[in-house]
Simulated assay, not measured.
Amino acid sequence: MDEILLLNRWIHIGAGFVGFFMAPAALAVRKGGPAHRLWGRIFFWAMVVAGTTAIFSASVKGLSFLLLTGIFSLYLAWFGYRSLYHKHMGRGQQASIYDWIGVGLGLMVFGGTIVYGLVTRNVISLVFGSIGANFAVQQLRAFRRPGPWPTGQWLHNHISGFVGAYIAAVSAFSATSLTFIPWPWNFLWPTLVMVPPLVWVQRRYKAKFSQGQRPEQIVEVRLQKQA
């Protein structure tokens, strides 16, 4: 088992290292362009590997913090990735079975995380569970809402999901490795640094959409086959 855990650790480190650099690379190029899609796809799969290996290691060692961050980053990465398939939601397009399964699992996992946090008085569990449950509930409401989604909603979800997954991954790395930073600042600084620019970008896009601009006028839009 020790050898398996060691191999799992190196795979986790490698995937996390790739993800740390791929996210800024995707943000630095034209949104929706070939390079953006390539770096974003690599980032997504890096987060899948990093999150899966974190969950495995945490389950074996009984590390609740690592387990929660692994689940949280995985869900946000899925949330951001699936949003690319929601460009015509409510206009002849409906949520697929993958969307319903993902939302259902999210509600169960994050609901259980909240209960665990309340029973054990674990603040981190309550924070992760509440944020994750909020994402899942909002997505569930969106899937059930009749009529078309607001203009650019899929783009907002895409940005929030991927940037959120990146913040969660950096927070986990900082909390477990940058021990020279006092707790809880070693866990919170990625959120404090990255959320304000995220909010600014979201508001900037929202203002453009309210002026009648379409997403394809702002970013390069590629239509994915529904899955």
Rank of each mutant, 00 (worst) to 15 (best):
W183A: 15
I71G: 07
G14N: 09
V123W: 12
V48T: 10
S177W: 11
L118A: 09
V127W: 04
G111C: 00
A26D: 04
F20C: 13
A168K: 02
Q217S: 13
P34L: 11
Q138L: 14
I167G: 03
I101Q: 04
L84Q: 12
W200Q: 11
I101H: 03
E3P: 05
R30E: 14
K206L: 08
G132V: 02
A207F: 08
G51R: 04
R145E: 11
H156C: 12
P215D: 05
K61F: 12
V18N: 04
T120I: 09
V127N: 12
G14Q: 05
W183K: 13
L198P: 08
I114W: 00
F20M: 14
V201A: 15
W45Y: 06
Y116W: 06
L76R: 00
I13M: 05
V195R: 01
R9K: 15
V170N: 00
A26M: 13
F44P: 00
V123T: 14
R204I: 08
A133F: 11
G19F: 03
V195I: 06
F44E: 03
L140R: 03
V109G: 02
I11K: 00
Q211C: 10
I11D: 01
N8V: 00
G32M: 12
R214S: 08
A35D: 10
E220R: 15
M108A: 15
R144C: 13
K87D: 07
Q202P: 07
H12Q: 10
T179V: 15
R41F: 12
A142P: 00
G32F: 05
W45G: 05
I97M: 15
A54S: 00
L67A: 06
F143D: 05
W154L: 07
L178S: 09
P190E: 03
W185V: 06
N157M: 13
Y166H: 13
I114H: 01
G102F: 02
F187S: 09
W149C: 08
H12C: 01
R41M: 13
P148E: 01
I11V: 15
V119N: 05
L105P: 02
W200L: 15
G111M: 05
I218C: 10
F44Q: 05
I167H: 03
Y98C: 09
A25D: 11
